Simulated scan of single mutants.
Amino acid sequence: MPIEWVSLTQLSKECGIDKRTFIANYMADNPPQRHVGDRKSWTRADANRIKRDLFGVEIEDVEVENN
């Protein structure tokens, strides 16, 4: 299964906060796993952990069917 990457913009929207707030308050404890130029990304699994642990966002386990 390929790795799904979540950008800083996407992660901050899913958490319901501004990305500058995420950078200032949470980035040091949750560093991105990938840097491409000035873009930062986390794996989907790590993004879900961040959303659940820091923001209390409920994550539903959904299996993806390959058609």
Rank of each mutant, 00 (worst) to 15 (best):
63 E>S: 13
58 E>V: 13
39 R>K: 15
60 E>N: 10
60 E>T: 12
30 N>Q: 06
10 Q>E: 15
11 L>P: 04
38 D>C: 11
45 A>N: 07
10 Q>A: 14
41 S>Q: 08
24 A>R: 15
27 M>Q: 13
59 I>H: 01
53 D>Q: 11
60 E>F: 08
1 M>W: 01
21 T>G: 01
6 V>H: 00
11 L>T: 05
43 T>R: 03
50 I>V: 04
48 N>V: 01
53 D>M: 10
12 S>P: 05
27 M>E: 14
62 V>C: 10
21 T>M: 08
7 S>N: 06
66 N>D: 12
55 F>V: 06
12 S>R: 01
4 E>S: 13
66 N>K: 10
37 G>Y: 04
5 W>T: 04
31 P>I: 11
18 D>N: 14
20 R>V: 12
13 K>R: 15
43 T>F: 01
64 V>F: 02
21 T>Y: 09
39 R>A: 11
8 L>Y: 07
8 L>D: 06
47 A>Q: 01
57 V>W: 06
47 A>M: 01
28 A>M: 10
33 Q>R: 05
63 E>H: 09
65 E>T: 10
26 Y>W: 06
54 L>C: 11
2 P>L: 03
4 E>C: 08
45 A>M: 05
10 Q>N: 12
3 I>T: 14
14 E>L: 14
31 P>F: 07
17 I>Q: 04
29 D>A: 13
45 A>I: 11
51 K>W: 00
64 V>T: 11
25 N>S: 12
57 V>T: 08
40 K>L: 13
55 F>T: 06
18 D>R: 12
29 D>S: 13
5 W>D: 03
55 F>C: 07
47 A>S: 12
46 D>I: 08
7 S>H: 06
48 N>P: 00
11 L>I: 10
35 H>R: 12
42 W>T: 02
35 H>Y: 10
27 M>N: 07
16 G>A: 05
3 I>R: 03
44 R>T: 00
22 F>Q: 03
54 L>P: 00
54 L>E: 11
24 A>I: 02
21 T>V: 12
50 I>A: 00
33 Q>H: 06
39 R>C: 10
59 I>N: 06
53 D>K: 13
66 N>G: 04
36 V>K: 09
43 T>P: 00
63 E>P: 02
27 M>V: 09
7 S>D: 10
10 Q>S: 14
34 R>D: 00
4 E>Y: 05
40 K>E: 08
55 F>G: 05
32 P>A: 15
55 F>S: 04
61 D>W: 01
63 E>Y: 07
58 E>M: 09
61 D>N: 14
16 G>D: 06
15 C>Q: 04
14 E>W: 09
11 L>R: 01
18 D>L: 11
44 R>S: 06
14 E>R: 15
42 W>V: 02
63 E>C: 09
30 N>L: 02
20 R>W: 11
33 Q>S: 07
28 A>Y: 02
62 V>S: 11
26 Y>M: 01
56 G>W: 10
32 P>Q: 09
23 I>H: 05
65 E>W: 03
66 N>C: 02
9 T>E: 15
65 E>L: 12
41 S>R: 05
3 I>D: 05
66 N>H: 10
39 R>I: 04
57 V>M: 09
59 I>V: 15
58 E>F: 04
24 A>N: 14
30 N>I: 04
48 N>K: 10
24 A>W: 05
23 I>W: 02
7 S>C: 07
53 D>W: 00
13 K>V: 07
20 R>G: 08
19 K>G: 00
29 D>V: 03
7 S>I: 08
9 T>W: 05
54 L>V: 04
26 Y>T: 02
